[in-house]
């Protein structure tokens, strides 16, 4: 189970980091969202993985670790606020600069880019 879990965390990190390195703001926002999933899962798992052991007193024999859960709960909400801020910043950047590039201008290697019809990446 643990191996499968960390595979998912690694996968989300991989996708998140790749998207964060894109030139446009929207993929970066997607990437940050993905990264925050990964980070939340990572932090959550630091208390160990347990089944049917919610930290409700009297509900089960053993309890999962409540502390990372409490921390992750606020992290989820704050993460949303952060994503929202970046999205709005991206829109504002587009309104003020006329484009939605991370750098505020077209990246210099656009000319070298392969034609849009070929390949998806």
């Amino acid at each position: 189970m643990e191996a499968l879990y960390v595979y998912c965390v690694g996968m989300l990190t991989f996708c998140g980091v790749f998207l964060c390195l894109r030139a446009r703001l929207f993929p970066v926002v997607l990437g940050l969202t993905m990264l925050s999933y990964a980070v939340n899962l990572f932090l959550f798992s630091s208390g160990g993985l347990t089944f049917n052991a919610a930290a409700i007193l009297g509900a089960s024999e053993t309890y999962s670790d409540p502390l990372p859960q409490a921390l992750v709960l606020t992290a989820i909400v704050i993460g949303f606020a952060m994503i929202a801020f970046i999205v709005i910043l991206a829109m504002r950047a587009r309104a003020d600069l006329g484009n939605d590039y991370v750098d505020g201008r077209e990246p210099p290697d656009t000319e070298q880019a392969i034609s849009p019809k070929r390949g998806n990446l």
Binding site: R22, A23, R24, L25, F26, A90, M91, R94, A95, D100, P107, D109, T110, Q112, A113, I114, S115, P116, G119, N120, L121
Partner: peptide
Amino acid sequence: FLPQKTHNESS
């Protein structure tokens, strides 16, 4: 408010 689709811009 943002473009729905963009071209490939990465080498």
